[in-house]
């Protein structure tokens, strides 16, 4: 298990390097720059600004400087929000974004797994059909529309829940954003779980387990759950990255104080430092989370550890 973990950590490093490189150069290829406003700046001012942020150096020197500073944990300054370091802005927005994302992720995973098991055990009966309907809604309605619809229904007409905002500690304000974020994730997981559970229940070793008379409950929890979770777990990594990127949009719909607010502004303003910092930070986050997922995977399926 330890060897496996070491191997996985080492193989994550090249991915991180490639991701940083691609992000850096793609951003520079996009037209426009941080100092292009509606009114052009005087050439001297522009030149000084570019010199201040080292944008006048050859691009490969900028690249190596950036990577070198990043290894030391310094994401550089924001180029549009005067006087802010990227890491400061991340530190302000991150706790909320992570809290929102992880809450939605955990809620969605638990609901998705349980719903998938219920659907599999009641295959082609009414609970299965109810699930199909819920899944379809979750997958086909985009989050910005779902968010607005739920705000309208529960926030404006029924007045059961606040329609948006965050006053720090009122958990009711999180119900709608978490629902919008979690729904598609739970939907995909429940479909995966249903399929893989049905497949597992048809396998020979489940027949063996039943032949021993251990009963349906133990058969499900001890024998079927772990093997059936394997495809679900391998989806959790990519699933989490969908969810975290979706959270950027949901934060701005519900007016929540997360990274999303800065990120969308930064992208519109071509704030190289902030966009790059945020993107690289997300890449790292997703790499770490994928790594955790892989370790869970190895725990679920002992054969993986030996490959």
């Amino acid at each position: 298990m330890f060897n496996y973990a070491t191997r996985r950590v080492l193989s994550a490093l090249p991915i991180a390097i490639i991701a940083v490189t691609v992000c850096f150069f793609i951003l520079r290829l996009a037209p426009g720059g941080p100092f292009d406003g509606e009114r052009a700046l005087p050439p001297l001012v522009l030149q000084n600004l570019r010199a201040h942020y080292n944008l006048d150096q050859p691009i490969w020197i900028q690249y190596f400087n950036y990577v070198w500073r990043m290894i030391q944990g310094d994401f550089g300054p924001s180029m549009v929000m005067e006087g802010f370091e990227v890491s400061e802005l991340l530190a302000i927005g991150l706790p909320f974004t992570l809290m929102l994302g992880m809450t939605a992720f955990i809620v969605a995973t638990i609901i998705g797994v349980i719903a998938g098991i219920i659907a599999a055990v009641n295959q082609n009966k009414w609970p299965d059909y109810v699930l199909v309907l819920a899944v379809m809604l979750g997958v086909i309605v985009p989050n910005f529309l779902m968010g607005a619809l739920l705000q309208l229904l529960f926030g404006v007409y029924l007045r059961w829940l606040p329609a948006g905002g965050w006053s720090g500690g009122n958990w009711l304000q999180l119900v709608l954003p978490v629902t919008v974020l979690a729904w598609p994730h739970a939907a995909r997981i429940s479909r995966l779980m249903r399929g893989s559970m049905i497949e597992t229940l048809g396998s020979n070793f489940i027949r063996t387990a039943m032949s021993k008379g251990i009963g349906e409950r133990l058969m499900l929890t001890r024998h079927a759950l772990k093997p059936a979770l394997i495809p679900v777990v391998s989806y959790l990594g990519p699933g989490l990255s969908y969810l975290l990127t979706g959270s950027l949009v949901v934060e701005s719909i519900f007016g929540l104080p997360g990274i999303g607010k800065y990120f969308i502004q930064a992208a519109l303003n071509r704030d190289y430092g902030l966009v790059l910092g945020t993107t690289v930070f997300y890449v790292m986050l997703i790499l770490v989370l994928n790594l955790l997922v892989d370790l869970v995977y190895a725990w679920l399926d002992p054969r993986v550890r030996f490959r």
Partner: peptide, 11 residues
């Protein structure tokens, strides 16, 4: 059962 390769729980 017939197939000992698949009749035991792999996990």
């Amino acid at each position: 059962f017939q197939d000992p390769m698949t009749s035991l729980n792999p996990s």
